[in-house]
Amino acid sequence: MAPLAHERYCDEIVLLTETLRSVISGADLDANVPTCPEWTLRELAVHVGGAHRWAGEIVRTRATEELPEERVPAFTPDGEDPAVLDAWLADGAARTAGALREAGPGAEVWSWYRDRSAGFWGRRMAIETVVHLADAALAAKVPYAMSPDLAADTIDEWLEIVSFAQAEGDPEAAELRGEGRSLHLHATDVPDAEWLIEFGEDGFTWRRAHGRATVALRGPLTDLMLVFNRRLAPDSDRVELLGDAELLDFWLARSSFG
């Protein structure tokens, strides 16, 4: 599937950040984040806001090489006042969306991915916020929901990134091979939201398709996305796991970010 429109990603960076701000408002910012145990809720929010500002500055300056954090204006909030954090998150999201809109998706900029464009950063920052919003909701013990197209795009982008990591020689991703095995994701609440991942001798391929597989994961699309991003356990009663559960565990253990 093609990515969503660039303008949509720009909008979602702002809208999802508004939701993040709402989630953490009044919450215990020193609470541990279960899905990112090295972070508190405050540190998670600062990570998201810093990522926005970093990507926004890369696009704004049309950077041709990786940008050091110390060259990013207001990379972290000034102090620990929750009101300051809230304003900092809002301002960073708005500035980043503004830089992305001004640049347009085709502007050439540095990235760590094969796609070196502002369009890459728009999509990456929107989806970064999709996933970390789930982390924040879990930590704050509030409900989490995601629009179907964004949830599906999050799965698509993750498969693209893991495929890129394998091509670049990432040692964990390199193990995602093995002739004759396959993994099927099947959303039960959204038509045609299915993915078939097939392992071969040289790696894996994937496509949007229905098919028999070594292991299948069925459930609501948002929950499939959360399992695939290791935010929901695959044995959760919110999803149904059929077939070789060890293959899904094998995938999840070797498809990590960075």
Rank of each mutant, 00 (worst) to 15 (best):
P3G: 09
L4I: 10
A5C: 09
R8A: 15
R8F: 15
E18F: 01
E18Y: 14
R21L: 13
I24P: 02
S25W: 08
S25E: 05
A31G: 04
N32Y: 09
V33S: 13
R42I: 01
A45G: 07
A45K: 12
G49T: 07
A51H: 15
A51K: 13
R53Q: 13
R60C: 08
E69M: 08
P77N: 09
G79Q: 04
G98P: 07
G104R: 03
V109T: 14
S117D: 03
A118K: 03
F120D: 02
G122K: 11
G122W: 11
R123T: 02
R124P: 11
L133K: 07
L138S: 12
A139G: 06
A140L: 00
A140W: 00
V142T: 15
A152T: 03
A152K: 11
D156I: 06
W158V: 09
A165M: 07
P171N: 07
E172F: 10
E172G: 11
A174I: 02
L183W: 12
T188Y: 02
T188V: 02
V190E: 10
P191Q: 09
G203W: 00
F204H: 11
A209S: 13
A209N: 12
T214C: 11
P220F: 07
L221C: 11
D223Q: 09
M225S: 15
R230S: 08
A233I: 01
A233L: 09
D244C: 06
A245G: 13
A253V: 07
R254T: 05
F257E: 06
